[in-house]
Design a protein around this nucleic acid. Structure first.
Lengths: 265, 265
DNA sequence: CGGGGGGTTGAATTGGCTCAAGACGCGTGG
DNA sequence: CCACGCGTCTTGAGCCAATTCAACCCCCCG
């Protein structure tokens, strides 16, 4: 039986920077085909880092998984699900990027996060999606029905444990983002956004100075609480100061140290 | 065995507006003495509403509870625990109000929430507190060691279930607060703060047009991302418009409908 | 080749912040 | 008992960071 006291130390180990609703309960290595083993979040990360054996948490030992998991593809800008809608599926993103957001009646929006390959999205306790999810570009996911997911989680303590850890991490990330939104300048928010996103790509693909930004400036603005123009201005300012270089579909980091130094601790 | 699918529908039932790190995993009726039964969050709420039998989730059926739970008192402004410190205790607030906050190195602060009687605070997966907690006035809590809490949670599935629900609610609240911080005006933030706090007092004590504000304007500002002066100005403006009346240690709501109409949906 | 969406940049505006002063309440010590 | 000091709250004046408004470019796609 997996006890809570077995939880890894989230404070000392850096929290994997997965945004969105419950990312990384489990992870599928980027680009891996359907039917492959699904691995637990921590194991997946270690696998990416190449440092240890994979957990067998999501091994398809009983042949059950291939029966309940299926691939799904979503074209650019299509909705994976909408806020307040009844939850039918949970997804693990396997390719592309997904925007998770909420809207006010008057059109104001807040982007809660961007889900990358490996991120787990679409789960909620209540059975209704708590935010909307849209494909930023073409997106592929590995999905299973909520009912099947619940059944599996309820029957395997280590999956329940993973879910528990994942929600706690989401909460921690939400608190970090609240600091950003409530107490940081535009410059700090923008730098923080870049640094955090870079860290996530790094955890997935290894050291990377190129940061893909397939989302619009508006999406970024709605994520860090700024307008399109301010985001654009901040990025231009960073470029002018030789901190980054703005390239097609993203930015290249030129001076990671100075960029990191911008964000408050 | 308690299954996740048994979770109450958090979306349709309004989320209890408990802020802070993991409030309301369990609740103790306000002012109840040490040694009394500790009840589950949902049951406690129902009990307050007077609509049903109490859950026996935390009944001291085995006589174990009184051995591991103890009362604690904290004078005004004292710390219950500090961010990053190793977690020794988890608390249920039984009297007074607790401020939960995080700080930057340069002194900037964000208040994550205010814990009211019945709120459960101080738990984290990692074993380190994720924020600091200070008594706003004299505070009493019912506490137990983290180890004892973990042991109890691990041995009782319905407690694990309560914990799970509580974290999910915290996450939902954090997302609401992110909308507030990222996309609302000073006027909306202040109105939202008052409305939310009122709802919590109402759930605890029944209909109440008086809202106690024992925290400073600075605390409120650090909660909703404004300065002391702006909070003061907004409250004065509300008073001038006959929405509220500023009284000793709090405000009295004069026009709930118009005040509620301010906040964006 | 024309239209539309995204991005950048400039100019003007403004919401909330900073700075400053004064009132008030409260605890403390003479 | 009062005087004092400190922290909190309020209000005003001026300022500035970010927004709004506007113009223009670029690219992609029909």
């Amino acid at each position: 039986m997996t006890l809570i006291s077995d939880f890894p130390d989230l404070a000392s180990s850096s929290v994997p920077a997965g945004y969105g609703i419950l990312t990384r309960v489990l992870g599928i290595p980027h680009g891996e085909a359907m039917g492959a083993k699904i691995r637990s979040a921590y194991s997946s990360q270690r696998a990416v880092a190449g440092s240890g054996p994979l957990s067998h948490a999501w091994d398809d030992e009983d042949g059950e998984l291939s029966a309940i998991v299926s691939d799904a593809r979503f074209p650019k800008e299509s909705a994976l699900f909408d806020q307040a809608e009844t939850s039918h599926y949970v997804h693990v993103v396997t390719g592309g990027m997904v925007r998770l957001h909420r809207s006010f009646a008057d059109g104001r929006r807040l982007v809660l996060g961007f889900a990358l390959p490996g991120d787990f999205i679409g789960f909620s306790m209540s059975g209704k999606y708590t935010c909307s999810a849209n494909a930023i570009g073409p997106v592929s996911t590995c999905r299973m029905s909520r009912a099947a997911f619940l059944h599996r989680v309820n029957s395997k303590p280590h999956l329940m444990h993973n879910l528990h850890v994942a929600i706690a991490q989401e909460l921690e990330l939400a608190h970090e983002q609240m600091m950003l939104l409530g107490r940081c300048t535009a410059r700090e928010r923008t730098a923080g956004f870049l640094i955090n996103l870079r860290k996530r790509w790094k955890d997935l693909n290894g050291e990377a100075m190129f940061i893909a930004l397939p989302m619009t400036r508006g999406d970024i603005g709605d994520f860090i609480g700024l307008t399109v123009e301010t985001v654009s201005r901040m990025l231009s300012a960073f470029a002018r100061q030789n901190l980054i270089e703005i390239v097609a579909d993203g930015v290249r980091i030129l001076d990671l140290r100075r960029l990191t130094a911008i964000i408050a601790t």
